[in-house]
């Protein structure tokens, strides 16, 4: 059987919020190493990769590798029934066709369980090549969410340009043009407030704002976000999930017009 108990149930609620705008359904692949999920959005322009390590769970048991196909809309409805303080347990019998979510209140005076049907998803996983990125930019996740929200008003595409001076986000459209320049933080007193840029070579790529805005639904997971870029390869937007794992979004660039 499979059983994973997470003391900080709010993390799973936030993971749900981070996935459900982009994906309708996905397979949760469980092994003794932990839980992994990889899926493309319907338009095959972006890919989401989630990893939750077994060590991050209060209790984790996976007798046999298991792939649970889930409708994320339904799963989101169930997880909305959990309070932020609840302990969440995911359980399933081997080759089961349902999964059960158990929510325990901190003082155990309320225990809920929800059983959901599983789906047969023939999700083939894509191979993601290891890449030594030309530029990586770490910045406050709230800052990145703000930039995506503000600039997407100006156009459907955003140009992200990284040079040794800093990183510039630009968008242009009918109403005009917006540019936001972030300089590398001088002093890094509060780690998560810093803007840290590692640049091997300058890169400038164009991306569709609507996907970037979907990615920022993961903002509540981590105070900082890391963008990785190389010429002519997908952008990576990564949010760490406490000490248990990460969610990574890959976005194909647009052809520079």
């Amino acid at each position: 059987m499979f059983e994973a108990r997470l003391l900080q149930g709010s993390l799973l609620k936030k993971v749900m919020e981070a996935l459900k705008e982009l994906l309708n359904e996905a397979a949760w692949d469980c092994s003794d190493a932990g839980i992994q999920l990889q899926a493309m959005d319907n338009s095959h322009v972006s890919l989401v990769s989630l990893n939750l390590r077994a060590e991050g769970f209060d209790k984790y048991r996976c007798d046999r590798n298991l792939s649970m196909g889930m409708n994320l809309g339904s799963m989101s409805k169930i997880l909305k029934c959990a309070s932020n303080e609840d302990i969440i347990t995911i359980k399933a019998q081997d080759n089961a066709d349902t999964v059960t979510f158990v929510f325990e209140s901190p003082d155990q005076d309320k225990v809920s369980d929800y059983e959901m049907k599983l789906m047969n998803l023939d999700q083939e996983h894509l191979g993601i090549p290891e890449t030594d990125y030309a530029c990586t930019i770490r910045l406050p996740s709230s800052e990145f969410a703000r930039i995506c929200r503000d600039l997407s008003q100006f156009g459907e595409s955003m140009v992200i340009s990284c040079t040794k001076e800093g990183v510039r986000f630009s968008a242009t459209g009918d109403i005009g043009t917006g540019n936001i320049k972030l300089a590398q933080s001088a002093k890094v007193d509060k780690e998560e407030e810093a803007v840290v840029i590692e640049m091997q070579e300058p890169v400038s790529l164009t991306f569709a704002c609507r996907y970037l805005n979907s990615f920022t639904k993961a903002t509540s997971l981590s105070k900082s976000v890391q963008l990785s870029m190389s010429p002519e390869v997908p952008l990576v937007v990564e949010y760490k999930i406490e000490d248990i794992g990460h969610v990574r979004y890959y976005l194909a660039p647009k052809i520079e017009d």
Binding site: M40, S43, H44, V45, S46, L47, E124, H125, L126, G127, I128, P129, E156, T206, A208, V233, P234, Y250, L251, A252, P253, K254, I255, E256, D257
Partner: peptide
């Protein structure tokens, strides 16, 4: 969308 490339043109199917 015009000019939008697909993720599948970068990552290989197994």
């Amino acid at each position: 969308q015009q000019g939008q490339r697909l993720i599948t043109s970068f990552f290989s199917k197994p």
